[in-house]
Design a protein around this nucleic acid. Structure first.
Length: 296
DNA sequence: AAAACGGGGAC
DNA sequence: GTCCCAGTTTT
């Protein structure tokens, strides 16, 4: 990563804003373990902070180390994950814990390629762990940071669907040379994107970059025309899978999901398809017998 | 390159 | 009710 030759005033302003406005989150506690940071990043991949925080606290109190999670029954792990969504993340986090125990003595590695080799960890999460768990000077590029840089530096209303090489290089050039400032920039630009420079309704009046923002200077164009990212929900396989997982989390015995009253409104074809996909994902276990029943 | 994958809160 | 939010893996 090429070092930032000179710190940008907008970067300085984000760092100063973050020093004032940073939320007090448990995984930002200096005493939080690298494992705790990794767990938080997996939970935060698709889920807002306010929903993650209580689950993270309970989770870390129950399984403080990778050894603890690796030894936990998957059903307990999926129940503790609760309604965070995308339960495959919980399964992969447990698998990740097992790999840490097998290959790294239960510790979280700090090398990028070793992090990328772990289940459930991609480019964003690997760099986030390096930055927030180890204080390394990493390029942490989630959609929040991409949006902040896109607007304040490049006058773009919203990031493109895919990260380009030029964008990655621009982001790398903005990361301050000092590890301490780099960490503040990485956390602060994410926080600014999450709280102020939001996608559809940015709070420019509260933004520390308002006077310096290239997009504001251009008149904040293009937001209305930008393509929406809505996904169907009602009646989708996604929703049915979620309902099935919720039933199994609350059950204390195997459930006959093919004919239970809570799923009467679901067509048999969709029910079977969703059950098969949950079993294929390794989230649900089919028990033989007549009728066939299911458990976590 | 595109599709699959939850769920809750704001309006 | 409708819209918004978003990283990793699989195809």
């Amino acid at each position: 990563m090429p070092p930032a030759s000179r710190i940008d005033s907008r970067v300085e302003d984000v760092i100063a804003w973050f020093a004032r406005e940073a939320r007090d989150l448990p995984w930002r506690d200096p005493g939080c373990s690298a494992w705790g940071v990794l767990v938080s990043e997996i939970m935060l991949q698709q889920t807002p902070v306010n929903r993650v925080e209580p689950v993270w606290r309970e989770w870390m109190s129950r399984w403080p180390t990778a050894h603890d999670l690796a030894a936990a029954p998957q059903a307990d792990v999926l129940r503790a994950w609760g309604r965070l969504g995308y339960p495959r993340r919980a399964k992969r986090l447990k698998e990740c814990a097992a790999v840490l125990v097998e290959r790294h003595g239960g510790d979280v590695p700090r090398e990028l390629d070793e992090l990328l080799a772990l289940p459930g960890i991609g480019e964003y999460t690997a760099n986030a762990v390096r930055a927030f768990a180890f204080g390394e000077r990493a390029v942490v590029l989630d959609t929040n940071v991409r949006r902040v840089i896109g607007r304040a530096w490049r006058a773009q209303p919203l990031p493109t669907a895919h990260l380009t090489r030029a964008e990655r290089e621009h982001a790398a050039a903005l990361v301050p040379a000092s590890a301490l400032e780099a960490a503040a920039w990485n956390a602060g630009s994410m926080e600014l994107g999450a709280l102020v420079c939001t996608a559809r309704r940015p709070r420019c009046d509260e933004c520390p970059l308002q006077a310096e923002c290239a997009w504001v200077a251009a008149g904040a164009p293009g937001l209305e025309e930008a393509p929406r990212r809505t996904q169907a929900w009602h009646g989708t396989d996604r929703q049915v899978r979620g309902r099935m997982m919720a039933l199994l989390r609350e059950a204390d015995a195997p459930v006959d999901l093919a004919s239970c009253p809570q799923l009467e409104d679901v067509e048999p074809e969709q029910r079977d398809r969703c059950l098969a996909s949950l079993v294929a994902d390794g989230l649900v276990e089919a028990r033989g017998g007549e009728p066939v029943t299911y458990t976590l």
